[in-house]
Amino acid sequence: MQARHIDHVNLRIPADGVGDAREFYGERLGFGIEDALYAAGEKPFFDVRLSTTAVVHLWPTDEFEPPTATNYDHVAVVVEGSADQIEAELDAAGVEIEKSLDEPLGAVGESPAVYVRDPFGYRIELKARV
């Protein structure tokens, strides 16, 4: 079997965190929010569209437990722009930067990355394209 790419990642969020998720991922980070089927009650999650081939499924649940260092570290998303541009966009959107690294290793090599936390405690790595 030959893998091509990651199709999706599933993340649980608090049942009352849907608005926070839409604001953070949609408004602050600028990713697409696809929630028509969720809003219609046809599926139990909604999507954050990262690209034409990748989404993050966000599953609202009453049993949400914030991630801990023992069970989660981060999701890495390659984005357009330099680290400086990424940092400037985050600053303009009011997103706190946890840390920046010059050359963390990723799937296609080393490139600068900026780390942030979403409203639920998940660390997101925003990695400049190699």
Rank of each mutant, 00 (worst) to 15 (best):
H57D: 12
A40M: 12
H8K: 11
A69G: 14
P60H: 08
A69N: 09
P60G: 09
G30C: 11
E34Q: 05
E63H: 15
G19A: 13
V18T: 05
D7V: 07
H8L: 03
V56C: 09
S51H: 10
R12N: 14
F31H: 02
V55C: 07
H5N: 10
A15K: 11
D73Q: 11
F31E: 01
P66F: 00
T61L: 07
I6K: 00
I13G: 03
E34T: 02
I33W: 05
S51V: 12
V75P: 00
A39G: 04
D35V: 00
L50Q: 01
E34D: 07
E63D: 15
G19I: 01
R4A: 09
R12L: 13
P14D: 06
D20Y: 06
G26W: 08
N10C: 08
I6V: 14
N10A: 10
R28I: 04
T52K: 14
T53P: 00
R28N: 12
R49L: 08
W59G: 01
V48D: 02
E42D: 13
E63S: 15
T53K: 13
D35F: 07
T68S: 12
L50E: 00
H8T: 03
H57M: 13
V48R: 01
V18L: 02
W59R: 13
R4L: 11
F64N: 06
Y25I: 04
G30P: 11
G17P: 06
L50R: 01
V55Q: 03
F45W: 15
I6T: 13
F46Y: 11
H57A: 07
A36T: 10
T70G: 13
H8W: 06
A54W: 02
L50P: 01
H74V: 01
Y72D: 10
E42I: 00
V56M: 14
R4H: 14
K43S: 04
Y25D: 07
Y38H: 11
R49P: 01
F64E: 06
A21P: 03
L50V: 10
P67H: 04
E34W: 01
D7T: 01
E63Y: 12
A40L: 14
H57T: 06
A54F: 12
P66H: 05
D73E: 03
L11E: 07
F24K: 06
V9E: 05
D62Y: 05
T52F: 09
H74I: 00
G30E: 11
I6H: 11
F45V: 14
A36G: 09
P14Y: 02
V75D: 02
P66M: 03
W59F: 15
P66L: 10
E23H: 14
